[in-house]
Amino acid sequence: MLTPSPRGDVSAAVLEALRTGAAPAAIRASDASGEDDLHLALWVLFELSYRGFEDVDERREWDPDLIAVRRSLEDAFEAELRDRCTPTPVGDDVATAIFAMCEADDGPSLATYVHRHATHEQVEQLLAIRSVYHLKEQDPTAWVVPRLGAGPKAALLELQFDEYGNGDPNRLHHHLFAKGMEAAGLDPKYGAYVDQAPAEALAQNNVMSMFGLQRRLRGAALGHLAAFEATSSLPSRRMAQGLERLDFPPEMVGYYTEHVEADAVHEQLAARTICGALLDDDPHLREDVLLGASVCLDLENRLAGRLLEEWAA
């Protein structure tokens, strides 16, 4: 993948530094010209730790000046999320609390719109936007593995092994999505649609990277995972039916039908086994787990609100 196009002063400074090999200008989150600028810059900096860019020296991943910029952007993003997402504590059982939060969430739903109303073109746009994450599905959460004790680590790997195809690359979820994209006539290349992803979608990607890459935020990472899985099974069925209505190819439909069944398992594992085991080890992470769940719901609602408004639904 080549570096994407800048969206303002901060992302321009970061991209310029990456492409030229120079130190980044002394730039901070407060210099960002908006959400697009901040989230693109942060997304590019995080991407250095995934697959990187063909036009950037791999050694820049650990460039202290770039990490200083990243820290500033992460701090601003985390403060915004903590300010906006204040989960109401429900009971003692963390799984009950997470499921209750997800059930109580009455935000706009892209899957419901795709089910009955979206046009072929709108669904292509949505798949392109989703591809930024789905082509690295589950990878951000993999950062959490070495930070856990035996109980939550085994629990997380039980879920992740299924996400990664149980040893069979043909069943690996991000590969299933790539096959669906290709069959649908979309570009299946990793990162192909970053320039088309709105700030709200980049924020969804960034929050997973931030929670995954900062050990301090491991509770939030796993709470986010639980809410993500708990809001996937039923919406995936609506997505599959919407894609069938619009005659999308079986490979693309199949990605979503796989998630109907897989995530009916994963939501139970994530909320009960993974978050439960984490809190057995570290009860003080409970607030962060619920924060992660709340952030997941919040950021999906923001993307849905943005796209449905754009589509004037």
Partner: peptide
């Protein structure tokens, strides 16, 4: 998708 769960209980 019986016999598997599809989340309908929710």
């Amino acid at each position: 998708v019986l016999p598997w769960c599809d989340g309908t209980h929710k």
